[in-house]
Computed example of a mutant assay.
Amino acid sequence: MKARWLIKIHHIHAILVGLLLLSGLSLFIQPVRTFFNEWKIPLVAIHTWIALFYIIIVLLSLKKAIKYTFKKPTLKKFNVHFILGLFLAWSLSGAIMYFQAHFPVPVRNTAVTIHDTVTWIAIPWLLIHSIGHTLKLEIPWPLWWKRHAKKPEWVQENRLQRRDFIKSLSLITIMIFIGGWLKWLTPMLHASNETNRRRGYFRIYNVTNDYPRYENNDWSLTIDGLVEEKKVLTIQQMRQLKWNTIIDDFHCVTGWSVKGVELTGVYIRDLFEAHDIKPKDKYITAYSGDGVYFDTFTLSQLVDEEAMLVFELDGAPLKKAQGYPCRLYHPTMYGYKSVKWIERLTITDERDYGYWQQNGDYDLDGYL
Rank of each mutant, 00 (worst) to 15 (best):
F78E: 11
F103G: 05
K77L: 05
I96L: 06
N79M: 09
G85W: 07
L75H: 10
K71I: 08
L84D: 05
F103A: 06
I83Q: 07
T69R: 02
V105T: 14
L84K: 00
F82L: 14
H102Q: 11
K77Y: 02
L86Y: 14
L75G: 01
F82R: 03
F99M: 08
N79I: 07
Y98W: 13
G94R: 05
K72S: 11
T69D: 11
T69G: 02
F103D: 04
L92A: 13
H102S: 12
L86E: 14
L88S: 10
L88T: 14
A89C: 12
P104K: 00
F87H: 02
F70N: 12
F70W: 14
F78T: 12
F99P: 05
I96H: 09
F82T: 12
K76R: 09
G94P: 11
F78A: 08
K77M: 07
F70H: 13
G85C: 01
F87R: 01
P73Y: 07
K72F: 10
F82S: 10
L92D: 08
A95Q: 00
L88E: 02
K76S: 12
N79Y: 11
G85H: 09
L84N: 07
V105M: 09
F87E: 06
L86P: 10
H81Q: 11
P73S: 07
S93Q: 05
F70R: 13
I83P: 00
H102N: 13
K76C: 01
S93C: 04
M97Y: 02
N79H: 11
V80F: 07
F82W: 12
K72E: 15
A95L: 14
F78S: 06
I96K: 03
G85T: 11
L88V: 15
P104D: 10
M97F: 03
K72L: 09
G85N: 06
F87I: 06
L92I: 15
N79C: 02
K71S: 15
F87D: 11
G94A: 08
Y98P: 07
V80M: 09
K76M: 12
L75K: 12
W90K: 00
A95N: 00
K77C: 05
P104M: 06
W90A: 00
P104C: 01
K77E: 10
W90E: 03
L75A: 10
S91T: 15
M97L: 14
A101D: 15
F103N: 09
S93A: 10
F82N: 07
T74K: 13
P106S: 02
N79F: 06
N79P: 00
H81V: 09
T69S: 13
S93L: 02
V80P: 06
H102G: 02
T74C: 00
A89G: 04
F87Y: 12
Y98K: 04
F103R: 06
L84Q: 05
S93W: 05
H81W: 13
G94H: 07
Y98E: 09
I96R: 06
P106D: 04
G85E: 08
L75N: 03
I96F: 02
F82C: 04
S91F: 12
T69N: 10
Y98T: 12
K71L: 14
I96D: 07
F103K: 04
H102P: 04
M97T: 06
V80A: 09
K76Y: 11
F70A: 12
S91W: 07
F103E: 07
